[in-house]
Design a protein around this nucleic acid. Structure first.
Length: 269
DNA sequence: ATGCCCAATCCAATTGGA
């Protein structure tokens, strides 16, 4: 079973690029972020015609996540638990029924968190964007604990907006004060990892120079000035099934690209 | 120190992204 994550930066602007990549990469499941569309505006027929089941959790203008799956989807849930007042569409999960195994698949678009606003005591300003990011990660931690307790193969994948290590940025010095790389953000990411998850890409590939995002500005792509912020976290039962994890870097160099590229895992499921 | 580029939107100039 091939499962991919792809922040497409707007479904309307990315229909062709996404379609071409799906035809070529042939993922069984694609977790999409930043569809920037309400559910009714998502061009589901284009993907249903390719054989995908389509489940969306959309929002006007910003955010929005979706699951495309050639395999049956069961028990679809929308929204990250833990705050009923949160109206941002950043989480969707479902059970994918594979030939050998069923996998609980969670697609996420973690808040960016900039600008970073701190109080005199160094804690984030309540209600600010950085505070929202860290509070969202508290809820993610709780959902992650519940997934582990279920003891079934499960994964959480998407745009984490977290640069885990120095080696995950071409110019780490440019990110030290940024919400994607600040100590609180990275610590929150590690607290989730350390519950017992496997970060799929780093389970397979070591060393610097592997990125999943290149800013549109300042010729970042041409200078290979990227960061690795799109991740797969696997429960132990899912990590047992891991066969491969790759970044489809070449997608960034095509016509009308997203600023992110697809990342995928192959599971023995 | 700032903008660069791109997408979406009450279609023009703003917001949000990372």
């Amino acid at each position: 079973m091939k499962i991919a994550t792809f922040n497409i930066n707007g479904i309307k602007a990315r229909v062709n690029a996404l379609s071409d990549w799906l035809d070529e990469a042939q993922p069984d499941v694609a977790l999409l972020q930043e569809i920037k569309s309400v559910d009714e505006g998502f061009p589901r027929e284009i993907f249903e015609d390719k054989g995908y089941n389509v489940e969306t959790h959309g929002q006007k203008s910003f955010n929005g996540v979706a699951i495309l799956s050639k395999l049956p989807l069961e028990d679809v849930r929308r929204g990250l638990p833990g705050d009923d007042s949160d109206e941002q569409a950043r989480w969707i999960e479902a059970t994918v029924v594979g030939d050998k195994q069923a996998i609980r698949v969670c697609g996420l678009y973690l808040p960016n968190g900039n600008p970073v606003e701190l109080q005199d005591d160094g804690t984030p300003v309540p209600g600010g964007k950085y505070d929202y990011k860290l509070r969202w990660m508290d809820r993610l931690h709780a959902r992650a604990q519940d997934l582990l307790a279920d003891e079934m193969p499960a994964l959480m994948a998407g745009d984490y907006n977290i640069i885990p290590q120095t080696e995950d940025a071409r110019r780490p010095e440019a990110w030290v004060e940024d919400a994607l790389f600040r100590p609180e953000s990275r610590a929150a990411f590690r607290r989730i990892l350390n519950l017992g998850f496997t970060e799929a890409f780093r389970a397979r590939t070591q060393g610097p120079g592997h990125y999943s995002f290149w800013d549109y500005q300042a010729g970042c792509w041409n200078r290979d000035d990227g960061i690795r912020i799109d991740h797969f976290l696997l429960t132990p039962q899912c990590a047992d099934l891991l066969l491969d994890c790759q970044i489809d870097k070449d997608v960034r160099g095509r016509d009308k690209p997203s600023d992110h590229v697809p990342v995928w895992v192959e599971l023995d499921a």
